[in-house]
C-alpha cells in the first residue's frame, strides 16, 4: 500500500486506466440489458400506440426536414457574410450520438459514462449536448467509453451570456445537487451595472461561444433568482435553473471537432 502511495503518477494512471478498461464491458453489458428489457416492454405495447407514434414521428420529420433545408441556406449565407467581414472561422464539428451507460450522480460528483470512446474519435474536452442544450464536457476517454462531466458539476465552467442582455459575457458554473432536489448552477462575473429587462419572462442563459469550444447559442438554463452582489461589489451572481433534468438523460451527442488541433487550444482555457 505504501509502495502504491509513492509509485509514479504515470504508473498509477496506467493501473487506473487498466482497471477502468476491465470494468467498462460490464457497465456496457448492464446498460444493454436494461435496453433489452425496455425493448421487450415496448414489444408488448398495443399496435394502435405504435401507429399513433409513427404518425407523430412522420409529422415531426416533415417539419424538421424543412428546418434542416432552411438552416443549410442560412449557414451558407452566414459563412459568406463572415468571410466578407473577415471574421475568424469557427470550429466545425461532427456529431457522434452516444448512449448513457451509467450515471454517477452524488453529493461529490456529477458524471455520466457514455458508450463512445477513443475508437470513435472522441477526445478530452469535446462538448456533450442534446436537444435541450448543453449536457456537459468529456473529461476522460477510454477505448469504447468516455466519462463526461455534467453541466451540474461544480467542476464544470463555461462562458455564457444572458439572452436579451446586450454585451454581457458571464461565467456559468454547476452548483451540484442535493438528494431529492433538481441539479442547479449559477452565473457569476455579471457586471454590477448590468440592466436586466423589466417584465421579461424567465431570462434564458445560453453559451456565448467566447473563449471556449462550445458553439454559441446552446441553451444552459434560466435565471432562477434575484442577482446578488459579490463581496467586492463589482460583480453580481444569480442561481440558474437548468434547462433539463440531467439525471434523466439517456442519449446525448458528442461534438467532435473536425480539426482535433482546435480542441487543444480550448481545453486549457475552459
Amino acid at each position: 500500500m505504501i509502495v502504491w502511495w509513492f509509485a509514479p503518477a504515470a504508473f498509477r494512471r496506467a493501473v487506473y486506466n487498466a482497471g477502468y478498461e476491465f470494468e467498462a464491458p460490464s457497465l456496457v453489458l448492464s446498460s444493454q440489458m436494461s435496453d433489452l428489457a425496455r425493448y421487450w416492454e415496448m414489444r408488448s405495447r398495443d399496435k394502435n400506440d405504435l401507429i399513433r407514434a409513427g404518425r407523430d414521428t412522420a409529422r415531426l420529420a416533415a417539419t424538421l426536414q424543412y428546418e434542416v433545408a432552411q438552416n443549410g441556406a442560412l449557414k451558407e449565407e452566414n459563412a459568406r457574410l463572415e468571410k466578407l467581414l473577415g471574421m475568424q472561422e469557427r470550429p466545425e464539428f461532427r456529431t457522434v450520438p452516444a448512449r448513457v451507460v451509467q450515471r454517477r450522480l452524488s453529493m461529490w460528483w456529477q458524471q455520466i459514462i457514455l458508450h463512445k470512446g477513443r475508437a470513435d474519435g472522441i477526445c478530452e474536452g469535446c462538448p456533450v449536448v442534446n436537444a435541450y442544450g448543453v449536457v456537459g464536457r468529456v473529461r476522460q476517454v477510454f477505448e469504447s467509453t468516455c466519462v463526461a462531466e455534467l453541466i451540474s458539476s461544480p467542476a464544470f465552467r463555461i462562458s455564457a451570456s444572458i439572452a436579451g442582455v446586450e454585451n454581457c459575457a458571464v461565467t456559468y458554473q454547476g452548483a451540484g445537487a442535493s438528494p431529492f432536489r433538481a441539479a442547479s448552477g449559477k452565473i457569476f462575473d455579471i457586471p454590477a451595472d448590468t440592466v436586466f429587462p423589466e417584465n421579461a419572462p424567465r431570462l434564458e442563459i445560453v453559451t456565448s461561444g467566447l473563449g471556449g469550444i462550445f458553439p454559441a447559442g446552446l441553451k444552459i438554463g434560466f435565471l432562477a433568482g434575484i442577482p446578488t452582489n459579490t463581496a467586492d461589489g463589482i460583480f453580481r451572481e444569480v442561481p440558474v435553473e437548468l434547462a433539463q433534468r440531467v439525471a434523466a438523460i439517456e442519449e446525448a451527442a458528442i461534438l467532435v471537432p473536425v480539426d482535433p488541433g482546435v480542441l487543444k487550444n480550448f481545453v486549457a482555457t475552459e
Binding site: 470494468e23 460490464s26 457497465l27 448492464s30 451509467q102 450515471r103 454517477r104 450522480l105 452524488s106 453529493m107 445537487a177 442535493s178 438528494p179 431529492f180 432536489r181 441539479a183 433534468r245 439525471a247 434523466a248
Partner: peptide, 21 residues
C-alpha cells in the same frame, strides 16, 4: 469484490434521478 462494487454502481445508477448514491 468486483460483483459487490458493480452491484452498488448499478443500484446507484438506478437511484440517480434522486441524486442518491
Amino acid at each position: 469484490a468486483y460483483i459487490w462494487i458493480f452491484l452498488a454502481g448499478t443500484v446507484s445508477d438506478a437511484l440517480s434521478p434522486w441524486n442518491l448514491a
